[in-house]
């Protein structure tokens, strides 16, 4: 909504005073904002402005906007058609590739989306963290946790200082049942992000499980496991002192 409020006066009013390139960039954002809030007719009205400017030349960006309008209207087939046509001409347009994948997700066609995303990532093998994260989510929805873990490993390789990736990885390891690795990754999250509540809960959870499990499933000593559990409990108790949920959590920690 903010985008619309800010951009509309710029486009309508001082139309000629903006630098050409800037003007059309803002116009593009305005159109997308209208599509988000479902005001499709307004979006189309502004799209006409762009079309008039470009006339007959082929523009991938314009095609992408056409596709997005069809998406907003619910005409997924048409949108897919538009995107495929665009990609024939402009192979390496990442934005259009991603819209194609997005349509398949919105369509409920998850397997196709996974397929396309995999093909995309064969080419764009480095640098696109969002794509790997999206693929991980899709795999999780399909219950293919091992593959999802692979995707998160890819983003860790790209950006090993981001504690959120380690957190995600640990969560997925819990799902697979590899609690020892999960515990280690929760610890790493805590290392990178002090007093991270999710990590503390994670450490507590996984190590309580490990304490009861067989020796072959764990690689740290019972001593360490107990120490970690105590640490987690202590930190959580300390952090929750200022929280309205303190009582409940204290009870929880006693379990």
């Amino acid at each position: 909504m903010d985008v619309i409020e800010l951009a509309k006066p710029l486009i309508d009013g001082k139309f000629s005073s903006l630098d050409n390139i800037e003007r059309y960039e803002i116009l593009e954002q305005l159109i997308v904002a209208y599509l988000d809030t479902n005001e499709i007719d307004k979006a189309e009205k502004y799209l006409k402005l762009v079309k008039d400017k470009i006339k007959d030349e082929f523009s991938s960006r314009l095609q992408k906007l056409y596709g997005m309008i069809e998406e907003a209207k619910g005409n997924y087939e048409k949108a897919i058609e538009i995107y495929n046509e665009t990609l024939k001409v402009d192979e390496v347009n990442e934005a259009v590739h991603k819209r194609l994948i997005a349509v398949n997700i919105a369509n409920g066609n998850r397997t196709e989306a996974i397929n396309l995303l995999n093909k995309y990532l064969e080419v764009f093998v480095s640098g696109d963290e969002d794509a790997w994260l999206q693929l991980a989510d899709l795999y999780l929805l399909e219950n293919q946790c091992q593959q999802a873990a692979y995707c998160i490993e890819e983003v860790i390789l790209t950006n090993p200082k981001n504690h959120l990736y380690y957190l995600r990885y640990a969560d997925i390891m819990c799902c697979i049942g590899r609690y020892q690795i999960a515990s280690k990754y929760y610890c790493k999250t805590l290392d990178l992000c002090n007093d991270n509540i999710r990590a503390l809960y994670g450490i507590l959870y996984t190590n309580q499980y490990l304490l009861k499990s067989k020796a072959e499933d764990k690689s740290t000593s019972d001593e360490t496991i107990k120490a970690l559990i105590d640490l987690a409990k202590e930190q959580l108790a300390k952090l929750y002192k200022k929280s309205p949920c303190e009582e409940v959590v204290n009870e929880f920690l006693k379990q």
């Binding site: 280690k184 990754y185 610890c187 805590l190 290392d191 740290t220 360490t224 970690l228 105590d230 640490l231």
Partner: peptide, 17 residues
């Protein structure tokens, strides 16, 4: 593996070890 002794690192960091 950077995470091999991460448990000890954490325990030391929080003063438990």
């Amino acid at each position: 593996w950077a995470l091999d002794d991460i448990e000890d690192q954490i325990l030391i960091k929080y003063g438990k070890k």
